[in-house]
Computed example of a mutant assay.
Amino acid sequence: MSPKISFRDVVKTYPMKNTTFTALGQVSLDIGDREFVAVVGPSGCGKSTLLSMVAGLVEPTSGTVTVDGAPVAGPGPDRGVIFQQYALFPWLTVRGNVEFGLKLAHVPAAERRRRAEHAIELVGLADFADALPKTLSGGMKQRCAIARAYAVDPEVLLMDEPFGALDALTRVQLQDQLLDTWTQERRTVLFITHDVDEAVYLAGRVVVMAARPGRVHRIIDVDLPYPRTEEIRLSTEFARIRNDVWTQVYHQSPAGSAA
């Protein structure tokens, strides 16, 4: 079966004064349909650049990035992007924010309302559909952003540190909410995070990146069953995988040296 997302020999460079900075160097990676993949690594390893390439916001200097075998040529409704910043319109209600992308796509009003209500229900905000963003907590704002992405019915969800600005308790609650939603409506998820525990808890595979230049250092399978529970988070197997990922992230050999 062909991969849903594919990176092939991807290089990304940026011009600098009298030199060139290589953000990504020869990255090759396949992500399967409906797979949940988390990417972790040290700062500057190119995690967000990878995601931005799939979103169509950044072009590779060389190599190819494809979705369903077609080269990414720009943003598209088949890919929903969720950033750390909520980017909600403050004058629109939760429902209005969730419907916004559908309105741009000229979806008829009745269908727009149906799809928005379904997405709002999925993320547990049905009681707040008529609330303005200023009345919502940070976690609720992020759930609204997730609902907005779901409403346009993307095949791929691209999530760049979506819970990074939240407190620890809200972060754990939204991790569970995300997995509940993903279990109900399986989509391909590429999830960027600095949090090793979060990566292991959410993903079926964890891609560990190395920096200077950014490259795939190791891919670790997370052989833990879904649905993920508090018992799994506290299990010895979770701790073993978490320690393996942690070691790969924070005890890497310098670029260019032997592994």
Results as ranks from 00 to 15, higher is better:
Thr66Trp: 05
Thr66Tyr: 04
Val39Tyr: 05
Ala210Tyr: 05
Met53Val: 09
Thr229Val: 09
Thr19Cys: 12
Val222Cys: 08
Asp167Gln: 13
Arg115Leu: 15
Val72Pro: 11
Thr170Phe: 00
Val37His: 09
Val152Asp: 03
Arg95Phe: 10
Val40Met: 02
Pro108Tyr: 04
Gly96Gln: 01
Pro254Tyr: 07
Gly80Lys: 01
Thr247Pro: 00
Glu121Cys: 00
Val94Met: 09
Pro133Ser: 11
Lys12Ile: 10
Ala147Arg: 04
Ala116Glu: 07
Arg205Pro: 03
Val27Ile: 12
Ala38Ile: 04
Thr64His: 07
Leu122His: 14
Leu50Ser: 00
Asp9Gln: 13
Ile120Gln: 05
Thr181Cys: 15
Asp130Asn: 14
Ile120Ser: 06
Thr64Lys: 12
Ala199Ile: 05
Ala151Cys: 11
Ala55Gln: 11
Ala131Pro: 08
Ala151Trp: 12
Cys45His: 02
Ala258Trp: 14
Gly256Asp: 06
Thr19Val: 06
Ala126Cys: 03
Val196Glu: 01
His106Ala: 15
Pro133Cys: 01
Val222Trp: 03
Asp130Met: 06
Pro3Val: 02
Leu224Arg: 08
Thr188Asn: 04
Thr64Phe: 07
Gln142Ile: 03
Glu185Tyr: 14
Val172Asp: 09
Glu237Asp: 10
Val152His: 02
Ala116Asn: 02
Lys17Glu: 14
Asp9His: 11
Lys141Arg: 15
Ile82Tyr: 00
Val54Ile: 03
Leu125Gln: 07
Ala55Arg: 04
Gly56Thr: 08
Lys134Met: 10
Leu92Trp: 05
Gly164His: 04
Met140Val: 12
Glu230Pro: 13
Val98Asn: 02
Val72Ala: 08
Met209Lys: 06
Arg205Asp: 05
Ala255Trp: 14
Gln84Lys: 12
Asn97Phe: 11
Glu198Cys: 04
Ala203Ile: 06
Leu104Met: 12
Asp244Phe: 10
Met159Ser: 06
Asn18Leu: 09
Gly256Leu: 10
Gln26His: 15
Thr188His: 00
Gly74Tyr: 07
Val11Ser: 08
Arg95Gln: 08
Thr61Arg: 13
Ala255Asn: 11
Val10Ile: 03
Met16Ile: 12
Asp167Trp: 08
Trp246Lys: 12
Val98Gln: 05
Pro108Leu: 01
Gly56Tyr: 05
Lys4Phe: 03
Lys103Met: 09
Lys4Glu: 09
Ile232Glu: 02
Arg242Gly: 03
Arg187Thr: 13
Ala105Asp: 05
Pro42Cys: 13
Glu185Gln: 14
Gly256Asn: 13
Ala129Tyr: 10
Pro254Met: 14
Leu174Asp: 02
Pro154Trp: 09
Ile192Asn: 12
Leu104Val: 14
Met140Ser: 10
Ala239Ile: 11
Ala129Cys: 10
Arg95Lys: 13
Gln85Met: 00
Asp167Ser: 06
Val107Gln: 01
Glu198Phe: 01
Leu88Arg: 03
Thr64Asn: 13
Ile82His: 00
Lys12Cys: 07
Leu24Met: 11
Tyr250Trp: 15
Arg112Leu: 03
Asp30Tyr: 00
Pro133Gly: 13
Pro133Val: 09
Ala126Gly: 15
Tyr201Gln: 02
Arg228Pro: 12
Gly214Thr: 12
Trp91Met: 09
Ala73Val: 15
Pro15Tyr: 14
